[in-house]
Design a protein around this nucleic acid. Structure first.
Lengths: 208, 208
DNA sequence: AGCAGCATCAGCCAAAAGACTGAGAGACCA
DNA sequence: TGGTCTCTCAGTCTTTTGGCTGATGCTGCT
């Protein structure tokens, strides 16, 4: 009678109980354990070998979700890993998929979406929330929006609040060059001011 | 037999079910309804007049938690309002308390803390998570660095990348006033440019 | 060899942001 | 009543940013 065994990983107790309550309504889904940290998750996977791991990315202290996914993959465990998180940051999506996540759900997903994602994951299907999918799709369609390494470097410093002059000094380039790079960055990010660039960089790209 | 009636407000279904499951273990706490938005919350409060409203601050679209709290206070309803959110941003704390919140809990609070906060709130006690309290405490020691509610509101919008003009339009004040507020904010944050202010706001204040 | 992309730089101009001073209205408190 | 705080606004001046055009050297690919 054993259905699909599920391990929940989230540092927030309310989220874990919420998921447990939701999944409890489905006869074929069995939450076999909960973990509040990446470390705990690794242990429990080893002990219980659940079919699916539902994992938050942001985990208070210690190992974060991405690291945990990587570790699981390295131990070539065969769990299907589903990311279940609040933010649809481009960088997080790419990193999670790269680390080996099977699906990517947002916390405002409907119960049906969550159930479907879990059932799909054990069958090797990749499921993601609509906003997440559309972000990935958009990235594939617009390669123009990919920052060059130098631009990314500049953007990273930009999020620390440096002025053009300081950026130039830090990177050993003239202020004119800084401006050129910034203009390109703004165009690629679809913004018009440095403030907006910083805001989108931190939110969308997950920089900090 | 009626216990303390509670309304849950959070745009994430899992969080609502989690809270409902947790509160369900306490015989004296009755979750009478759930709302997924600020608008919905206002309606349900009017209809059901719950003793306590447990409210998330970040709510996808539309009215955010702070606005909802303000509206509730204006309709001089006597609900105790508890903020239940993920981030312990200084600015959010100030604004929420200013708007009329009785307590401020973080989502990684233990069940006992949550229960105690709800029971305390109906008796007029103000309860907050330890990290939140320590932030407020630290602020009291450096009164020069405390942002006024208006400044906090402005800073919050600032982190979205708005220009001075846009800030003025959004807050219905002149650009001159925006500049004055910004000058004060910069002084309090110890920065000199808006970019740096955004950077520190996001890193130090946990805004996003 | 030729072309495309990247990184570098200059100069010009308009717009935005920031520093500084001063000031009035309302709230709150001693 | 007087003092303090907060929020509001104005004007001036300097600095910074951003938009635009154009240009050079390097690399890698075809």
């Amino acid at each position: 009678m054993t259905g699909i065994t599920v391990l929940l990983v989230d540092d927030h107790l309310v989220v874990r109980s919420g998921l447990r309550a939701l999944l409890g309504t489905q006869p074929d889904l069995d939450v076999v354990a909960e973990a509040a940290s990446g470390e705990e998750a690794l242990e429990l996977v080893e002990q219980l070998a659940p079919a699916v791991v539902v994992m938050d990315l942001a985990m208070g202290a210690g190992m974060d979700g991405i690291d945990a996914i990587r570790q699981l993959r390295q131990r070539n465990s065969r769990q299907a890993i589903l990311v279940f998180t609040t933010y649809d940051s481009d960088a997080d999506i790419v990193r999670a998929v790269d680390a080996g996540a099977m699906g990517y759900l947002l916390k405002d997903a409907t119960p049906d979406e969550i159930f479907a994602a879990i059932r799909g994951a054990v069958q090797g299907k990749s499921v993601m929330s609509a906003p997440v999918a559309s972000r990935l799709f958009q990235q594939l369609r617009n390669p123009d929006e990919i920052l060059t390494p130098r631009e990314a470097e500049l953007l990273s410093l930009l999020t620390e609040g440096l002025s053009n002059r300081e950026l130039g000094q830090r990177l050993f380039i003239s202020e004119a060059t800084v401006k050129t790079h910034l203009a390109h960055i703004y165009a690629k990010l679809g913004v018009e001011t440095r403030a907006a660039a910083i805001a989108t960089a931190i939110r969308r790209e997950g920089m900090r």
